[in-house]
Amino acid sequence: MKYSLFGNGKVTFGVVVLGFFVLLALVGPWITGSVLGLDARTNDISAISAPPSAEHPLGTTQFGQDVLAQVIEGARGSMFVGFLGAIIGTAISVLIGVPAGYFGGTTGNLLNFLTNLFLVMPVLPLIFVIAGYLQGTGLVMIAFIIGVFGWAGGARTLRAQAMSVSNRDFVQAMRMLGESNTRLIFSEVLPHLYGWIASMFLGGLIGAVMAEAGLAFLGVSDSSAISWGTMIQAAQQQSAVLRGLWWWFVPPGLCIALVGTAAALINFGVDELANPKLRSVSRRVVKRTAAHRIAVASEGA
């Protein structure tokens, strides 16, 4: 039976929301600048900590910067870190996890050891040390740090999956024909893991967006760049919560939550696609069965 990814309301919602934010990150700053005439960095002295108004739809910050423009500009920063971090993390977990599962033996054990090492490493302190060492940390560096320290869990999953696919008869059969390891990995094993990899990427995306915000909150960020994380950090530093400047920290927080939710919803669908056992009998099938029973019964009567 064919399974459609979009036959599922949750997934459609997730794709729409995520698509919106991606679009916002791509063209948003141009819209704010050229169409609305707002700028994220300009300080409007006439409106300091002003609540939402016609001029500033989401109000302004302590420094008179427009919150809407900042949120849109921040989408670019956060999504950039999110995607780059997820790409780096997923790439490393594929490069380490798949061979670890496919080869087994010494190679597999070595790669597995590396994975476990990164899994048990105290990541947060390390990040602080590295951030301190690197001094000015740009968004690229943040994404890089998030990716490099966040791949281990995914690699473990991929290792287990690659191991089970590698032991299936069709891989053995192609090996018996004389197919090389490289081809076996890329042509026979890897395509079966696409679902897992996609799911891992989405997980990584949520993780990276959150991690960026978390790190910014803790002070590891690029103070000149604008992202949702830096916005929240600035709001927190100026005690926006205590002073009731809700328009300053609620929008970026909400955006992070929305992106996370969207990615998670897509993930449900991808998971079901990658792992048919989760599909079992959906409520729709049960409903249809019941409807069919009734239809038949009324026909008979």
């Binding site: 299936r168 008869d169 069709f170 053995q172 059969a173 018996m176 024909l177 004389g178």
Partner: peptide, 16 residues
């Protein structure tokens, strides 16, 4: 490999 080939039991499992 060119001389000896094996046919597996499960035709559902031995084709990708």
């Amino acid at each position: 490999r060119k001389a000896v080939q094996l046919i597996f039991q499960d035709p559902f499992g031995s084709l990708n």
